[in-house]
């Protein structure tokens, strides 16, 4: 293809649970107050997209679904080298489960049109399902490679290796395809000065920005509101509860010296009734 590849990368804004801000004393996350970041898994997908575009030409379109502040991660992706972005933002998307989310993103990819490769992260850190990628592939009728570690492209064929339980599978896949990138793939490189500069200029020029990183709604992509949000979701969260704390049952060894701690621990282990002596003592 002379024009190179049309690459979509799906990214999501998630709470940054590594920062103390927005984490309640009981360990729950205050989603409103928490600092936000690009889902760490998506960074591997963005890196693979950048490598692919740099090697074969074409453009990278980053796509996210979320509230308006999620524009920040699209701008950030541009700083890393993405060419364009779409934020699908619509109140009617609230409470979407994975099936409904996949439907909305599928409609967005269809709206973009003629996409060659869709890259996603393995999963998100706030949902942790890893389902949305394959669910989108099903709707697009794309073949998929999940847990992809390495890949190269020759013509319209992707050669990829994916992690399987207890090994590696090497595959060939026809383009178009959806690829989810494992977090053992190459890490996101530093932002290049040129891309940071270009994005900064872009953010100043509202007119060009509006054509480069766009916010769209269900109406733009022609998605039936009944198929997203709560109505389009076959699952709901029925109940949540805190994990029971076993607190207090831990025997602590904390003394002046590590040596003393270890020695008393070993003594206790010999009286342990959980049956570890077979392996340890």
């Amino acid at each position: 293809m002379s024009d190179g590849l049309k690459i979509v990368v799906l990214i999501k804004q998630v709470p940054d649970t590594s920062s103390a801000a927005g984490v309640n004393p009981d360990g729950t996350v205050d989603r409103v107050r928490a600092r936000k970041m690009m889902n760490p898994f998506d960074q591997f997908a963005l890196q693979k997209a950048i490598e692919t575009r740099n090697a074969h030409g074409g453009e990278i379109i980053v796509v996210s679904m979320g509230p308006p502040p999620a524009l920040a991660i699209l701008h950030e992706a541009c700083e890393y080298g993405a060419d364009k972005g779409y934020l699908l933002s619509d109140r009617r998307l609230a409470a979407s489960d994975t099936l409904a989310t996949a439907f909305a993103l599928f409609k967005t990819i269809e709206f973009i049109g003629n996409v060659d490769i869709v890259f996603t992260g393995l999963q998100t850190t706030d949902g942790d399902t890893a389902q949305v990628g394959p669910q989108i592939a099903e709707r697009l009728d794309f073949p998929q490679v999940t847990y992809c570690e390495k890949m190269s492209i020759e013509g319209r064929t992707i050669r990829a290796s994916r992690i399987i339980d207890g090994g590696i599978q090497r595959l060939e896949v026809d383009i178009p395809a959806l690829i989810t990138i494992a977090n053992s793939a190459s890490r996101l490189e530093h932002k290049r000065f040129y891309n940071v500069y270009r994005t900064r200029e872009l953010l100043r020029d509202k007119q060009t920005l509006a054509k480069t990183v766009m916010t769209i709604t269900l109406d733009n992509i022609g998605a039936d509101p009944a198929r997203v949000g709560l109505m389009g979701s076959p699952t709901v969260v029925g109940k949540t509860w805190k994990l029971g704390e076993k607190g207090g049952s831990c025997k602590m060894f904390q003394g002046d010296s590590a040596k003393h701690g270890v020695e008393t621990l070993i003594e206790s282990l010999s009286e342990d009734e959980r049956g570890i002596e077979e392996y340890v003592l």
């Binding site: 489960d97 994975t98 099936l99 996949a102 942790d128 399902t129 890893a130 389902q131 949305v132 990628g133 394959p134 669910q135 592939a137 099903e138 709707r139 998929q144 999940t146 847990y147 994916r162 992690i163 399987i164 339980d165 979701s233 076959p234 699952t235």
Partner: peptide, 23 residues
């Protein structure tokens, strides 16, 4: 919820337009 099940189950669930809970 293995590299096989997490690859296959979402496709089947999406085909039947039904709910799927992960992991």
């Amino acid at each position: 919820a293995t590299t096989l099940g997490r690859d296959l189950a979402p496709r089947i669930a999406s085909y039947f337009e039904t709910g799927l809970t992960a992991d």
